[in-house]
């Protein structure tokens, strides 16, 4: 059994598909991908697939992830092409990667979401935890940003999902706001060393 990491984007009208609807569309595309998928057992077998934490409705994403189990390594270019033919407009596979066995599962590393927030006050980067109990309070974070800058938000895009804050700072050395889901504080992110 091999695991494949699927990186995809969700743009335009597809941003209005719920997490569940997106999962359905991706699963259908996987079934049409030609890959030899691993299915769950039981009366209602399903594709063995796991998704990154849900994206709120209306938020676009440039780099979302899902992980799918296959019996043997497929032709990745062919699989990409077939999946893209089977996806609704706005959902597209960006890349596929066969994961080495030592790589942790998606659910283990998908911790932080990085968002680009565009509004009258300009464009910001906002980071918050998306896993576990306190994850996914994007709406609260946006409200906090609006309050702080007194400007409305026009568009929000999740630009990536990361395992640690340091990874984000490496890629985005400029100012990134970090929203603490535990206490609702907004601060400028600095290298923590802790991740």
């Amino acid at each position: 059994m091999k695991r494949i990491l699927v990186k995809y984007y969700k743009k335009g009208d597809a941003a209005y598909l719920s997490h569940r609807e997106t999962m359905r569309a991706m699963e259908r595309a996987l079934r049409r991908s030609g890959a030899d998928l691993v299915y769950t057992s039981g009366f209602h077998p399903r594709v063995k697939v796991s998704f990154a934490p849900a994206l709120p409705l209306g938020v676009s994403a440039e780099a979302e992830y899902l992980e799918v189990a296959v019996e043997r390594e497929p032709d990745l270019a062919d699989m990409t092409r077939r999946m893209n033919e089977a996806l609704p407009e706005g959902l597209r596979v960006v890349s596929l990667q066969v994961l080495p066995d030592y790589m942790p599962k998606l659910s283990r590393w998908a911790r932080y979401g990085l968002y680009r927030v565009e509004g009258a006050g300009g464009s910001f980067h906002l980071c918050l935890r998306i896993d576990g109990e306190g994850g996914g309070r994007l709406r609260d974070a946006l409200q906090k940003l609006e309050d702080r800058f007194g400007a409305g938000v026009d568009a929000v895009t999740r630009v990536g999902i990361y395992a640690s804050r340091d990874e984000i700072l490496e890629e985005y050395p400029d100012k990134v706001y970090f929203y603490h889901t535990e206490n609702g504080e907004l601060e400028i992110m600095e290298e923590s060393g802790a991740g």
Binding site: D13, A14, Y16, L17, S18, E21, A25
Partner: peptide, 10 residues
């Protein structure tokens, strides 16, 4: 469920 009104079905 805005998905009902998008018209971008496969």
């Amino acid at each position: 469920k805005p998905g009902r009104y998008l018209g971008i079905e496969v």
